[in-house]
Design a protein around this nucleic acid. Structure first.
Lengths: 144, 144
DNA sequence: TTAAACTCTACTGATTTTGTAGAATTAAAA
DNA sequence: TTTTAATTCTACAAAATCAGTAGAGTTTAA
């Protein structure tokens, strides 16, 4: 399961994607509309800014806005940033690999195959799911 | 990521699958060979027994053994039992469904699609991965 | 100069995870 | 019948992670 932090990040980014190139958006605005605790959201947005997904403008009239285009940001990137590995086992992770403590020998472990396939399919689906796609999908579904 | 508990359960079950229909196996035996803390393993095996995957024999010469056949036990069942939902979001879960607190309207949420697909692919792969298959795979890979 | 916004450090409470202790129960075997 | 070796069960506890808060500092527009 994704953490709340990660779900908050996705919702905030979708909200900002809907307002792409329309100037900075207040944290307060995002927090209220998306039902996210403001102080918690602050930390999340800061992290997204440090990862060059967002930029911010300080001071009066400031706020956060998308730095990357909505087509460039996909769910894989967001999840890895917020929650870490995509895979279900550390021993089949591309970005967060660790040897399994339990497995004595990775080469003869019969369990890894299935989880490698799950990882591949998950990456395939989530990497194709960009902010632009999500916004487009919501328009199709009739969200105002 | 799977919890340690879940990984322990998988390893213990594979170990028992390799000894299917060869009588009860001591917890001690499983714990030592699979590097699992014995007391923790006790709780895990008891849970697997309560779910009718294992049976046990008490007293001297007792132990645990597979009740279901290795062909009947797949990774979906084990993960659901140990860690809960397969899906990454509660709002797309079959067995652990909960409405998303963040989404005001599930029907117009553009995020769920991708996670529904991830869930479907994950279920497809993991439901096809049985204890029998894992044991077979380990034989192929040359595990003694 | 003031007000409104983000920035940053530190902290805290709740929950989950990962175990451990120890007594009770059961059953085989001596 | 007693001993011994195993599972069963209840209760607890340490550690890690998650979710959220407090509050001072910095920046910028008006």
């Amino acid at each position: 399961m994704l953490s709340k932090k990660c779900k908050y990040a996705i919702h905030a980014l979708v909200y900002l994607a809907e307002r792409y190139q329309q100037g900075p958006v207040h944290i307060q605005d995002i927090a209220e509309s998306q039902h996210i605790p403001k102080k918690f959201l602050e930390a999340i947005l800061l992290e997204l800014k440090n990862s060059k997904i967002l930029h911010s403008k300080k001071g009066k009239g400031g706020g956060y806005y998308l730095y990357k285009s909505p087509e460039e940001v996909n769910l894989v990137e967001i999840i890895r940033l917020m929650d870490g590995a995509i895979s279900l086992l550390p021993c089949v992770s591309y970005n967060y690999y660790e040897p399994c403590e339990e497995c004595r020998d990775e080469k003869t472990c019969g369990i890894r195959d299935a989880f490698s396939m799950v990882r591949d399919e998950t990456l395939r689906v989530l990497s194709g799911s960009t902010l632009a796609q999500i916004v487009q999908r919501e328009k199709e579904l009739g969200k105002v």
